[in-house]
């Protein structure tokens, strides 16, 4: 793990919404192939951190580097850097006017200028990978939530990304659909894709994470392996959070 190079570097990141500092001095390094799971109470800044990594939110202070390229203040290359980062949203955000196949091919074709037939071949590979190739001609509204989220994962994978970001990918799903999405994500983690995942699924965190990051009040409180974090959390606030969510 040590010789693997740095994929994401977050340096002294601060983000302000009005009078609130959603992120208050975050430093984070993610190496190639690592799976990082970010947990913490709502409003702790997890999603904001994730959204700063691909610049959906503009940081107020600090720097973000993606594979030795500075993304903050780099308006020119922003789109090309973003195209190398796949993002999966809580509410899927599929394009409802396009078929599943078109959802997965569009960015390939207009951002990376891949010819249609090749883009469709790549799309079908990824749809098969998430087990939903038979719905290629359907529209998003015809699919269940779990199926839509798997399409969204395929759409992000089709960008051939260096990094995958997941922003609470199962929070909007009915309970019986959570597993199918987590199974896909576990398989991706096994394949060695660099992943940063914001989630409340502790089972997934335990099984897939190389490291857990616990955030509270816009700061990283604790960073540890899953075993350490779940068995002997070092910090008082981590213990309080864990006792709350694991008490049932």
């Amino acid at each position: 793990m040590n010789e693997a190079h740095e994929m994401i570097q977050v340096i002294n990141l601060r983000k302000r919404f009005g009078r609130l500092w959603a992120l208050d001095g975050v430093n984070l390094t993610v190496r190639k192939g690592q799976v990082i799971v970010i947990i913490g109470p709502s409003g702790s800044g997890k999603s904001t951190l994730l959204r700063c990594i691909n610049h959906l939110e503009t940081p107020t202070e600090g720097e973000i580097w993606i594979e030795r390229q500075k993304i903050t203040g780099n308006q020119k290359q922003l789109n090309s850097i973003r195209s190398q980062i796949g993002m999966v949203f809580q509410h899927f955000n599929l394009y409802p006017h396009l078929t599943v196949l078109e959802n997965v091919t569009l960015a390939q074709r207009i951002v990376r200028k891949i010819p249609k037939s090749q883009a469709e071949r790549i799309a079908m590979q990824h749809l098969e990978r998430v087990g939903i190739a038979d719905k290629a001609r359907s529209y998003p509204a015809q699919l269940s939530g779990g199926q839509q989220q798997r399409v969204a994962i395929a759409r992000a994978l089709a960008q051939d990304p260096k990094i995958m970001l997941f922003d609470e990918p199962t929070s909007a799903l009915d309970p019986e659909m959570i597993k199918e999405v987590l199974d896909v994500m576990l398989a991706l983690a096994d394949d060695g894709i660099t992943m940063v995942v914001v989630t409340h699924e502790m089972g997934f965190a335990r099984a897939a994470a190389d490291e857990i990051i616990f955030m509270d009040y816009g700061k990283i409180v604790e960073r540890a392996t899953p075993e350490r974090f779940f068995n002997q959390p070092a910090h008082e606030r981590s213990r309080a959070f864990l006792s709350q969510i694991l008490s049932h």
Binding site: L56, R82, M87, N93, Y95, H97, A107, I110, V111, A156
Partner: peptide
């Protein structure tokens, strides 16, 4: 919804590409 523009931009589309292919058709 804002999520449409965000998804398109997150994929590396420019503002105008997102407008043309994602927002305006809807």
């Amino acid at each position: 919804g804002r999520g449409q523009m965000e998804a398109a931009r997150a994929q590396g589309m420019t503002y105008w590409q997102a407008m043309r292919y994602i927002i305006l058709p809807q």
